[in-house]
Nucleic acid binder design. Structure first.
Ligand SMILES: [Zn+2]
Length: 272
DNA sequence: GTATTTGTTCAATA
DNA sequence: ATATTGAACAAATA
């Protein structure tokens, strides 16, 4: 499930678990998931061995291990990944990072969509996914959002999902944000008035704060690095819901911007 | 067998 | 240049 908040939680909990430790070994059963400046697993592992983890950070939905010597080991959990600490290997374990102090971190990822990058900071920041990220959804300014809105002729749903405009929002957060803001997902972004844009801005912050407060969303496999489950799935107002809690009418989903989109036709009316 | 899935990228098309 | 749509990636689940 990892959307921005799940990635943020992963980063935070990994920080307390592994910051300052050294990498002893690196393992995979899915070498196709590695994108490395060094080429393959063998050379990458050789470079990783002995490197200290100076800090943890995040760009978009990527968790970043900042290593000594300005090197980066970064992970994108994509659709089905999570990053447990000290979990024994299972059939879905794709990568493992063995650390000093008998600690290890895994990328467990049944669908194998996850990606692991290794390279210099400079190289990493030139990777297309990273290079193209827009303003981070957790810190975008009102003026930045307003400018993006007025310059986009695409639908709101498509804009919010577009990582090169706003980085981090996923399908669930988008639907919850638009429901809270009472905005139709098909509404053209550059037609919002100031009141609507302000409501959208507030809704981004409110929903993300809520997701964080409830520890993220655990729909199937996603867990915190320490094994804790998120509970935001119990707080959904619109995503996967049958009935709107505001107007009591039934909710239908449509495919918008390539994704299942849940919205209330009464509370989020189309202006056209 | 069917359809769906928290994400991203790419090709084809308008 | 922008925007949209569908397919692809791979596996689990309903
Ligand atoms: Zn409603």
């Amino acid at each position: 499930m990892p959307e921005i908040i799940e990635v943020e939680i992963t980063k935070q909990k990994l920080k307390s678990a592994i910051q300052g430790k050294r990498i002893l070994d690196f393992w995979t059963d899915w070498p196709r998931g590695l994108i490395s400046q060094e080429g393959g697993m063998k050379k990458t592992t050789k470079k990783l061995k002995g490197k200290k983890i100076n800090g943890l950070s995040r760009k978009g939905k990527a968790v970043i291990l900042n290593l000594e010597g300005h090197k980066i080991l970064a992970i994108h959990q994509r659709m089905s990944g999570h990053m447990p600490v000290n979990l024994p290997e299972n059939k879905h374990t794709r990568f493992r990072i063995f650390l000093s102090d008998n600690t290890d971190v895994s990328l467990v990822d049944p669908r194998k969509f996850g990606v692991v990058w290794y390279g210099s900071e400079k190289w990493f920041n030139e990777q297309p996914y990273i290079k193209n990220l827009g303003y981070d959804a957790m810190s975008i300014k009102r003026s930045q959002l307003f400018r993006i809105l007025s310059n986009s002729r695409s639908s709101l749903k498509s804009l919010l999902l577009n990582q090169s405009k706003i980085a981090g929002l996923g399908n669930i957060a988008c639907d919850e944000i638009l429901w809270r803001a009472r905005l139709n997902p098909l509404c053209r972004s550059d037609t919002l008035n100031v009141r609507e844009a302000e409501l959208l801005y507030k809704s981004i912050y409110t929903i993300l704060a809520d997701v964080l407060r409830y520890g993220g969303t655990s729909m199937s496999n996603w867990r915190h690095p320490d094994g804790e489950q998120g509970n935001y799935q119990k707080k959904f107002k619109i995503y996967k819901q049958k009935k709107c809690v505001r107007c009591k009418k039934s909710i239908k989903s449509e495919k918008i911007a390539g994704r299942s989109t849940y919205f209330c036709k009464i509370c989020q009316p189309s202006k056209i």
